[in-house]
Write a protein that binds this DNA or RNA. Structure first.
Lengths: 197, 197
DNA sequence: CGAAGTTGACTGACCCGCCAGATATCGCCG
DNA sequence: CGGCGATATCTGGCGGGTCAGTCAACTTCG
């Protein structure tokens, strides 16, 4: 039975389903038929919207990123105290809750795929560019206001973002010594040192 | 023709070949036949030494880790100045040179696989346990000698290791803003702050 | 009616794991 | 010392299963 009303969203449904499947079984085991079933449609329909599996995957990565950004818009566009914004940034990336964990797992799959896919490298570049600029700008704001320690803001941003990624991986692969609480403590310890030292 | 002399090393050859293939084409595209060809043998022989593809992969990950450790033994067992040891540790993990880059790429494949494989989670746990203990111990040494700033050594170790992983990923996926030089600078900046502040 | 959307069966390619047979090595015994 | 199984190692091909992508037929809507 062809679509009754939600025609335009079919593509979105498929991408969301693809992200779920990738997060659950990994890119390696993901099948077009899994995505179709999850989206409540057929494999034929998936191929109607996407020319190839590769295209589904790339679009799913892009979609995963877009929704990550959207969820954090309040943080990016807020006008709070720079210290509070940094804290909110860090907390929003703690792998807690189904949605955040799923986004992280998808992102980890992207990394290994990006090793050989220039298109995904570009996506990564865009994303990290945004983050670095955002974090560095917030840090500079804090420095101007005399709230944060002096020093190269870009370098601090790189340290923080690197730490978040590296620690998140450990949490996600189920390390017993690197729990979410520990990750949170380590990141906030870093932020504490940035504040007036 | 059966092996003339090097019988015992066949297994090792296969594992080394598997690491090379994984690093080059990714776990997703790795074929037993690729590994066999790279090892200069047949797919039958690979199955003679390993019961399944999964077993080849897991053994290859273990092997990759062991060789990483072996290459760094001088650093782990050295008796230098703690500051020099930390610096050597960091530098040895910069993704420079064919061998180190290969090891990193294999490790990245391990991470995404470990999301669903408890056996690989255990391997990861062992590895990071060792590193944390090593780095924390060196930092404590430095503190005792009055060379490094006071503070929770384990937390500093977690920050450093997290940073290394996160930044290495960016370098490996070919970020134009996170080059090896930049990664080196960021890590060494962190070490500089650890020294007497 | 025609266009847009949907379906699921089908196909051709691919690949893991198995296996039957080949080849070398070695111990044993006459 | 030379033949002779026994054993370890190796090989390449095949069977069976899987899956991406195609397609012809179908449904619904305008």
């Amino acid at each position: 039975m062809p679509r009754p009303s939600v025609e335009v969203e079919r593509r979105e449904q498929i991408l969301r389903a693809a992200c779920e499947v990738i997060a659950e079984v990994g890119l390696r085991s993901m099948r077009i038929s899994d995505v179709a079933r999850r989206a409540g449609t057929s494999s034929g329909t998936v191929h109607y919207y996407f020319a190839s599996k590769r295209e589904v995957v790339h679009a799913a990565f892009e979609d995963n990123f877009q929704r990550s950004i959207d969820r954090r818009r309040p943080i990016f566009e807020g006008e709070d105290d720079p210290r509070a914004r940094l804290l909110a940034f860090v907390r929003s990336y703690l792998p807690v809750g189904e949605e955040t964990v799923r986004a992280w797992r998808v992102w980890m799959e992207l990394w290994s795929e990006a090793l050989r896919e220039p298109e995904l490298q570009d996506l990564n570049e865009r994303v990290y560019g945004e983050w670095r600029r955002f974090v560095a700008a917030v840090i500079r704001d804090g420095q101007t206001l005399g709230l944060l320690r002096e020093g190269d803001a870009v370098e601090y941003a790189n340290r923080l973002i690197g730490m978040i990624d590296g620690l998140a991986i450990q949490v996600l692969v189920g390390s017993r010594s690197m729990t979410v609480e520990r990750m949170s403590a380590v990141c906030e310890g870093f932020l504490a040192e940035l504040e007036q030292k």
